[in-house]
Design a protein around this nucleic acid. Structure first.
Lengths: 155, 155
DNA sequence: TAATCAAAGTCAAAGAAGGTCAAAAGAGGT
DNA sequence: ACCTCTTTTGACCTTCTTTGACTTTGATTA
């Protein structure tokens, strides 16, 4: 692993996995001490790697006995999961967010790696030769259509 | 070897070979220092010698813990077939022709049925909310990008 | 209840990579 | 010599990460 943020990300994901419950509750200061970084780095890690797009929900509480709770969004039914993501896409979608969503689809085995690469390529700003307000709208449209196809085309 | 770019090219290829994994991850600044050149020379080497056409895929990340990852991809017998289709696509592509091409890809087992459906959906005129000269151009662009991905990203 | 302590949150600056682009320099060919 | 193509360089840009001062919120205690 190359940097602190990646290391902490892996650590938290392992915690979630090991818990067997898709949830983990941490003390920010405690983790910061364990990895010898400032506490706010935890906020950075969470904000960049445990977002909705990535398939996580985060709750927290301040003050004495405070905590940060990270929950992996349940992807029980593929339909719900896709509906959730679709709603998250809205009518505009940046390349960044698109990547996160595709990554999430891949991690949840909704698409194969090859499919993920195809979808990414299509939505790359290089491919969508458009200026900005339109490009993000087209990207959103495309991804939602793809999700529909994924949903209705199998089984 | 007569120039720095060739030397670096050889060096990187040797690294890939020795790794046994078809992948190598480097730090741009580190290599630059090793060969006593400016960092951007690495970009030049990569852009001229590690392209898709050469059978490589390159990913990178900026910022702390950044890297450049070069992956060698097998270029199989599909290469010619896809090159042929790509050339057939040209700069513009109607929905009709797109369908035919995708059908052909499917029949030749270059894509799965699901992949075919995804690609079709993306290129549907409903999805590409554009007026006509542009729509056909975008469709062509997309399909060619998809073909590149199929060709250079496998395994 | 007010004061205090114990978390977590925010935000912006500084730091650490890699990317781009065009000008300058070299190499080969005529 | 002159032209063209490739390589080398460097100034400037964008993206991602780290850090820390300051804020907000919740719990405890006087």
């Amino acid at each position: 692993m190359r940097n602190m943020s990646d290391i902490i990300e892996q650590y938290l994901k392992k915690l979630i996995e090991e818990s067997g419950t898709e949830v983990v509750e941490i003390k920010r200061a405690h983790i910061a001490e364990k990895f010898d970084c400032v506490p706010s780095q935890l906020n950075y890690v969470i904000k960049t790697r445990f977002t909705n797009e990535h398939g996580y929900t985060v709750e927290s509480k301040r003050g004495g006995g405070g905590y940060i709770r990270i929950t992996k969004v349940e992807t029980h039914s593929k339909a719900e999961y896709l509906a959730h993501l679709k709603q998250l896409v809205g009518d505009q979608l940046s390349q960044q967010n698109a990547k996160h969503i595709i990554q999430s689809l891949y991690e949840n085995e909704v698409v194969t790696q090859k499919e993920a690469k195809i979808i990414s390529a299509v939505m790359d700003r290089e491919t969508l030769m458009l200026e900005l307000p339109y490009r993000d709208r087209l990207r959103a449209k495309i991804l939602k259509r793809v999700m529909d196809v994924i949903l209705y085309s199998e089984e």
